[in-house]
Computed example of a mutant assay.
Amino acid sequence: MQPHDTHADHAMTMPTDNKIAKRFAKAHHSYRSHAVVQRLMVQRLMAGLLAYLPAGVLPQVLEIGVGSGLLTDALLERYQVQQLYLNDLYEHIMENPLANQPSQCQYLLGDICHIDVPQGLNLVVSSAMLQWVYPLDGLLVKLYHAMATGGYFAMSSFVQGNLEQIYQLTGQGLAYDTPKQLLARLTMAGFVIDKVEVSDEVVYFDSPMAVLRHLQATGVTATSGSFRWNKQRLDEFCQRYWQLADAKGVPLTYRPIIIIAHKKTNKTP
């Protein structure tokens, strides 16, 4: 699972899975209070899923990138899960309280691209995580084959234009897919797309430094790889960022996408 640069002309050493795990493990307890957009994404994801998969009993569910458990909580509030599989890179997820305990819960620690996943899954969910997997193609095929026929895949992620102010000022960031590219990957894997929703969510802060603290508190560093802050670079960043401020404050733009898809039923001969 490798993060990736937005443009080829900005060469950098990419964070390893271990570095990503350390970032999010460090932010585990601060995530919930700072992840305003990510919380909104969970709400929209669940609302979209319920339109296609009404609340009820689900035999087998996999959540990828559990983090602090925002999506887990929302999932268990709406569905009676008999077997829940929870995945992430770090073991802190095992500390998350499960308000509505599933019949059985199993933790799958490690890179979802490389570990074994259960078969016959009725639902696979993931929120604000899959942008770290590039390209997604191999994982999507793996998940498609692990799902039961008619099973649903509900995901939220970020697309091109996410954190645009950070890229504009530092030239650093992930190579986010466009919505069209992401949908093409899902279709090529075999999924039928049921719902797509893209939005721009602008969060305002008191200062450029507050933006950086926010990103750190949610496990996302403003830059990656070989980029290193120093006093001169930080001063320049703040000075230029102030020029983007308006009456509401210093803006940071998120561009989330919500997708509901399913594994098509087999056609009878």
Rank of each mutant, 00 (worst) to 15 (best):
D235C: 05
T170D: 09
L212T: 05
D5M: 11
L244C: 12
P97G: 04
Y144T: 09
V202E: 06
V37R: 00
L86D: 05
D73W: 02
G69S: 04
L182E: 02
L45S: 03
I257C: 01
A261P: 10
K267F: 03
N18F: 00
M12S: 15
I258K: 01
R233V: 14
D206W: 01
G48M: 01
G190H: 10
A217L: 06
R213W: 01
L136W: 02
V117E: 06
K231R: 15
G219T: 06
Q165V: 06
N100H: 14
A247T: 12
L163M: 13
L139T: 08
V36C: 01
L234A: 07
P269N: 12
H214W: 07
D17P: 02
N266S: 12
V36G: 00
P269K: 05
K22V: 01
A35W: 02
G65P: 03
Q43V: 01
Q38F: 06
T13V: 14
M155I: 15
I112C: 13
E201Q: 10
H4M: 09
S30P: 10
Y176D: 09
D73T: 14
G151Q: 02
F158R: 01
K263H: 10
A184H: 12
S127L: 03
V37T: 13
L174H: 00
G171V: 07
D137Y: 03
P118W: 00
H262Q: 08
P118I: 07
A184C: 07
T72H: 06
M46L: 14
L182V: 05
A55P: 02
D111M: 09
H29V: 09
L252V: 12
V133L: 08
M1G: 09
L98F: 11
A148Q: 15
W229A: 04
G171N: 03
Y31R: 03
G69N: 06
R185N: 11
T13R: 15
P102C: 00
G48P: 03
A47E: 12
P135S: 08
K231N: 15
Y52R: 11
M14S: 12
V196D: 04
G151N: 03
M209W: 04
H7Y: 12
